[in-house]
């Protein structure tokens, strides 16, 4: 047994806590806490960070098990040129006018998401 373990120092493991507000929401990182194992981390998580908010699910992940970006990677790998209109609707704004000329509307987000409801046959 190492000196460290004699003092119980390895009790303090860092866990990152993720939670979901509703069934349709994504997991969000809340904060981190210390616990000796995942069972205890799970037990601590909700009352530490989500005392006042609705939670439907929680993940705890040991920080060592997360491969995050290091500062250099954040600096080097995350920049993107501002030349990608071709992959967004921004590049197709002119269609609105063209469809108007033909007395039709363009298929935009509002229109498409309204198709959730379909007339009953």
């Amino acid at each position: 047994m190492t000196e460290e373990n004699r003092n119980g120092s390895s009790f303090y493991q860092v866990y990152e806590v993720f939670s979901k507000k509703s069934a349709s929401a994504s997991f969000q990182l809340q904060f981190s806490l210390l616990a000796p194992n995942e069972e205890m981390a799970m037990m601590m998580a909700q009352e530490n960070f989500m005392r006042r908010e609705k939670v439907v699910d929680i993940w705890v992940v040991r920080r060592d098990h997360i491969r995050g970006m290091n500062p250099e990677e954040r600096e080097m790998w995350t920049n993107r040129l501002d030349n990608k209109e071709y992959r967004t609707t921004k590049g197709y704004g002119y269609l609105r006018r063209k469809w108007r000329e033909k007395e039709q509307d363009m298929l935009d987000e509002k229109e498409i998401l309204s198709w959730k409801e379909v007339k009953k046959g």
Partner: peptide, 19 residues
Amino acid sequence: RALQRICAEEVFHAQHGEA
């Protein structure tokens, strides 16, 4: 949840096709 992500991208696809 997968469909939410997919449908959001479909708006771009629709306009790509329209164009």
